[in-house]
Design a protein around this nucleic acid. Structure first.
Lengths: 184, 184
DNA sequence: GTCTATAAAAAGATAGAC
DNA sequence: GTCTATCTTTTTATAGAC
């Protein structure tokens, strides 16, 4: 797969968009094909089954998470701040993939669930390396997951109530780290 | 509806269980009827359509959230601690309902999304009353949402990594509140 | 109130033309 | 590589017996 065909990429992207924006139930092969601008037959040439589409999402997420972990581990602001800040981003390729993975996992796709757990493990590992304290790493994982859950929702309640509050949250991070050192 | 028929209750409960344990896609009318031990026809007498089932979930969640808000506002440990502690509970009727609501919202059921936003607003209001500081209320909402997202997953990654860590988390709450007062 | 039988639509997948 | 046509299964919903 040196350079996947353009049509294949377009189909996969359409599938991910449908998963994120309308949910797993709406992400049918027919709807995906239509959104990608190909026929059902055309789609099935690249992805022989629905399962193949889901597996492609898992595989793509792995490519992107490897790049993200590199950035996280070398971020000047520190892994924790990087992690919280990027958890609130909704327009990145990685965040789309993570949301798609979550939708698949909740629909019973076992490999998506496994991949999400694997990703969480690697994040936790990177956080522990920076903050040392398990309780604080736990806290930061929860904050990130919360941000992720809220901003991943199509609704605007979160934006209405906490727009612009992210910078305040990030200012609290050094203080949270201090709490951890006090605990040790 | 002074006392809903037993069969109706059993059907609704089966639907909620399927939503939580196997996802929205698996929660078909046929599967729901089978799990409730009635026929499709029997189910359709109580719920004329799939939409009627979803609306019943929303209505039941409203009953339970009113009771929970009362408990939260009068909890001796304080609203924030109560809120975080109960967010990690997975076996209560309310938490099942909230998970079911989330699954419906993610499947495009608009009223479920509206209800979730309404619930978040009322929680935030109760938290603000106790902690005063918006950033800290924000932080606590995120922690709770994170707990909720992690523990609502059928997977065991969270349990493996953070089993027994909840008490440490709760011990941090007073310190978080202090951070808020420092900010004012 | 609950059942069986059945219709109507949607979804996943195959076959073969181009 | 992409399309149309078709088949099978699943899902939602209706009709009417009991």
């Amino acid at each position: 797969m040196a350079r996947p065909p353009a049509a294949r990429t377009k189909v996969l992207d359409a599938y991910i968009s449908l998963l994120c924006e309308e949910g797993e139930r709406a992400a049918t092969m027919e709807a995906t094909a239509a959104k990608a601008g190909v026929s059902k037959g055309g789609l099935l040439y690249h992805f022989a089954s629905k399962e193949a589409l889901a597996e492609a999402v898992v595989a793509l997420s792995e490519e992107l998470i490897l790049l993200d972990l590199q950035d996280m581990n070398t971020a000047e602001e520190g892994a924790a701040s990087y992690f919280i800040r990027t958890s609130a981003q909704v327009d990145t390729e990685l965040d789309r993939l993570l949301l798609a993975l979550q939708r698949l996992a909740q629909s019973g796709v076992e490999s998506a669930n496994t991949q999400l757990e694997s990703i969480s493990s690697r994040w936790l590992e990177a956080l522990m390396e920076e903050v040392g304290d398990k309780d604080i790493a736990h806290l930061i994982m929860l904050i990130s997951e919360g941000l992720y859950a809220f901003t991943g929702t199509p609704g605007t309640w979160y934006q209405r109530n906490f727009e612009g509050n992210l910078s305040h949250l990030l200012e609290l991070v050094p203080q949270l780290k201090k709490l951890g050192h006090r605990n040790q």
